[in-house]
Nucleic acid binder design. Structure first.
Lengths: 155, 155
DNA sequence: GTAAACTCTATCGAACAAGTCAAGAATATG
DNA sequence: CATATTCTTGACTTGTTCGATAGAGTTTAC
């Protein structure tokens, strides 16, 4: 049920771009993201490139180059990012809406596990579609202004 | 966000044992599970063995041998099975209750992504802890009695 | 005692994940 | 125009996991 490191990096990078998003053409360098987020630069290059082909970000080359979101952060959901980087959100592909594949069980239409997995899928998709990069940026701003919460050290 | 095939097989096998569960010592042969569920027999052996060390099932050797649940199906949740076979249910380990690990982000306590992942974790855990093998067996019985639903062919 | 079943350990190939590298193309700036 | 800076592209490495197979051993019903 885990997100890959790749997917996690993608979300972190997109959050940076979202927080930096402005209507003009300002871009953020890979290196800057890499340094502030502790993400290996070469690896991040790949990820941003994927997201470029996916139409999530756009890039500008050369000295003052870098990356920026292609659309307004409130138009980009976490679901979209993860689907591009990781594939289906569904825990098993026989309940995936976008990447459906038949499974090996004897009768899919009467499979109780499948019914439960459908519920699970729905709740995962619900969270991921409901959250946009704009939400993320806003929450991030809110968290930055709060003092450190000692509770967070006690997980 | 996917379940491994191993985890899926584990759930399917446990569902069989749950449907067959009786208070006496009756067991189900590996081969029978393997055949009805289309699971490679040798592979299933490994999985059942894991679940035996985990205390979920018990085995009986010899001619009339096989496997059975060690506890009543209503005492075994899907969460328990998956945790033993796959590890953490949490999408990232920095929000896992049972397998917490620090992540590489600059400030975990103020990480907006982490906050969202926590919500996601909670909804996943909620579904998986709420569902027991007894629930699964019951739903399975209910589904078997229904006629085929044409809607299921239109996913 | 023997055949049927599980037990345990080892191994395998393929795929995938995470990360690295190098050579190339575009561009702002002096 | 030269150059340093930055993205681009694609290949490559290294380690791990996944799914599966194999074989020798153990237990038990009959």
């Amino acid at each position: 049920m885990k997100l890959s490191v790749r997917g996690e990096y993608a979300l972190r990078a997109m959050q940076v771009l979202a927080s930096d998003y402005q209507e003009d053409d300002s871009v953020v360098r890979i290196q800057e993201i890499s340094e502030t987020q502790n993400i290996p630069k070469r690896f991040l290059e790949q990820i941003l490139n994927d997201l470029k082909s996916a139409g999530v970000v756009q890039s500008k080359r050369g000295v003052a180059g870098g990356y920026r979101l292609k659309r307004n952060p409130n138009q980009i959901t976490l679901a979209e990012i993860i689907r591009h980087i990781e594939g289906p959100l569904a825990p098993v592909s026989c309940v995936s809406e976008k990447y459906y594949e038949k499974c090996s069980c004897p009768d899919e239409s009467r499979c109780a596990i499948r019914a439960v997995m459908k519920e699970l899928r729905d709740s995962i998709v619900h969270v991921m579609e409901a959250t946009t990069l704009a939400d993320l940026a806003e929450r991030s701003r809110a968290l930055e202004q709060q003092p450190l919460n000692p509770h967070d050290f006690m997980i």
